[in-house]
Design a binder for these strands. Structure first.
Lengths: 150, 150
DNA sequence: TATTGTTATACTCTATAACTATA
DNA sequence: TATAGTTATAGAGTATAACAATA
């Protein structure tokens, strides 16, 4: 090990580095499907957990609502989701996966899962599960939709 | 736990979320010192590990060299580092911490360490160290300067 | 009056290309 | 000829403000 400042072997720094590194791997793994990481997340939230409004997508993805508009435009243009007026509140759109969108999502999840396996290759099976559990424990208090609805 | 797609409890997704979340905490913790996360990393690399050129900073931070110029400009303007011509190759700059820069760095590391402790509060001491080791194991093959010099 | 979604626009951040000085 | 650093500029990504429809 080189003569490094302790900062660079801290959990926080390595977490940041791991995040950005994995992010590039994800986007690379999704290029074949003409999909971005963000688009995949929208599909994922639309896939389960009840009706998804654009505002919900905005808070869950941590993105400005105006960005979600463009994001949903793209996904609707490629036929993966469709906007439907919410009958209970006609201001809202319900974002729903089309059959094509569901197939696309399944393929994308497979691609991302493979990328994750590559990324975590230095760890064995129990270590990978250990890491996952530690991250769940850390992030659950910070992701509202993990504990209940949002 | 809500009816969530498995994607959102995967190690990869949680890693991305943890990374971005911690990133905002870091920047918030550094505002009092008028410092950004990137500036802190430059100070950290200049603090140890031999002479640091701007090109080295560029590869280590994963930033375009033109961005490093502005980054170093800022740090030099506030008196935290200074550029010195490398006597062995006068094209290069050696980035060196000033005494003021070292003090600033020490303060910043304390602030970041506190933020990290807050962020990892859901974990106990052994769990935090376990997470750190798993991240070291995962990232060492991907960070050239971890194993030797770069 | 407040909220959802939308558009238009201004701002920030980043990358590209061209230049200098050194090698 | 190639490389380290710099500058100027164009492009992508983002946030801000104003608007229409609905509550």
């Amino acid at each position: 090990m080189a003569d490094l400042d302790p900062l660079f072997i801290s959990a926080g720094y390595l977490l940041l580095k791991a995040g950005t590194h994995f992010h590039t791997l994800i986007d690379a793994a999704l290029t074949d499907l003409d999909l971005t990481g963000r688009q995949l997340l929208v599909l994922g939230f639309a896939n389960r957990g009840g009706p998804l409004s654009q505002q919900m997508a905005s808070t869950r993805l941590g993105l400005d609502p105006t960005i979600v508009v463009a994001l949903v435009d793209e996904l609707e243009a490629c036929g993966a989701i469709k906007r439907e007026r919410d009958p209970d509140d006609r201001r809202r759109h319900q974002l729903k996966l089309t059959p094509k969108g569901r197939k696309l999502y399944d393929s994308a999840v497979r691609a991302v899962t493979a990328a994750e396996r590559d990324f975590l290759a230095p760890l064995d099976r129990t270590e990978r599960e250990s890491l996952r559990k530690l991250l769940v424990e850390t992030m659950t208090p910070r992701l509202p939709w993990m504990s209940d609805d949002a």
